[in-house]
């Protein structure tokens, strides 16, 4: 099975160290390209003017918010079913990154909303769902660190992540329903798939850049967690010796 190949932390570290420089390079290139295309090449929108450029940091952040949560749920399932040693680390290392992206999606959304809607916050279905997702992230991070035994925290967080993941579509559906009941359907919507290529390319470049950025941080954080685990093992060795 493919997972077994990464089960050994030493092998994982070897692999991580090998691909890290490439990932860092690719991240830099993609983000630089995305920024250049988004800020200088892409045209202003005929309705929204230059405020549409917020899209190039907002939409990738929102993508990452969902993507990272999905990854956490997958890692949690792997952790609970196969008791894979790296899965817990991957889930816990992902959570703060995902929370940061979700926060960015919310704040940039708000900064986009102010010139478009005239207010900083609308209880729009998407914004509300992302806000709830942010709370799910915070809960996950809180329970991870709530136990004296980090292993217990990781397992509890894994169960919570799976329960949360089952709930995400239900929350999305219920918020959509609630929103159509309470809100006139005149809120601004993004262009959808009919987006102009000059706007699509910077968006894709930034999306890829954000994804690579996440991969780099994830590898570094897992590495750091592995060393942390060794340090804890050394502590218990010292206690045994004493």
């Amino acid at each position: 099975m493919i997972l077994d190949r990464f089960a050994n932390p030493a092998r994982f570290l070897r692999l991580a160290n090998a691909i890290l420089p490439w990932c860092v390079g690719a991240t830099t290139i993609m983000l630089a390209a995305g920024l250049y295309l988004g800020l200088f090449v892409a045209p202003p929108d005929y309705q929204q003017g230059d405020s549409v450029r917020i899209m190039y940091v907002h939409v990738p952040a929102a993508w990452m918010a969902m993507f990272v949560y999905t990854n956490i749920a997958i890692a949690s399932a792997v952790s609970l079913i196969w008791r894979h040693p790296l899965a817990d680390l991957a889930a816990n290392a992902s959570a703060p990154i995902g929370a940061a992206f979700t926060f960015l999606a919310l704040v940039t959304g708000s900064l986009w909303g102010k010139p478009m809607w005239g207010t900083w916050w609308v209880w729009d279905a998407r914004l509300t769902s992302v806000l709830i997702l942010f709370f799910l992230y915070l809960g996950h991070m809180a329970i991870t660190s709530a136990f004296d035994n980090p292993a217990r925290g990781a397992k509890a967080a894994a169960v919570l992540a799976l329960v949360g993941f089952v709930n995400v579509p239900i929350i999305k559906f219920s918020v959509d329903w609630w929103n159509t009941l309470h809100q006139p359907a005149s809120v601004f919507r993004m262009g959808g798939p009919s987006i102009h290529p000059d706007m699509l390319w910077p968006l894709l470049a930034m999306g890829l850049g954000y994804t690579l950025f996440y991969v780099v941080l994830l590898l570094l954080r897992i590495k750091s967690e592995l060393i942390g685990a060794r340090l804890r093992a050394l502590d218990s060795l010292r206690q045994d010796a004493a």
Binding site: D50, A100, L217
Partner: peptide, 26 residues
């Protein structure tokens, strides 16, 4: 950026700050 600079630059700036912060902490 026209009249929207006050919204666009903070979006990019905050994204940069948060992402750099993540890197530094890590």
């Amino acid at each position: 950026m026209g009249s929207y600079g006050g919204y666009v630059w903070p979006s990019y700036g905050l994204s940069a700050v948060i992402m750099a912060g993540l890197v530094i902490v890590t």
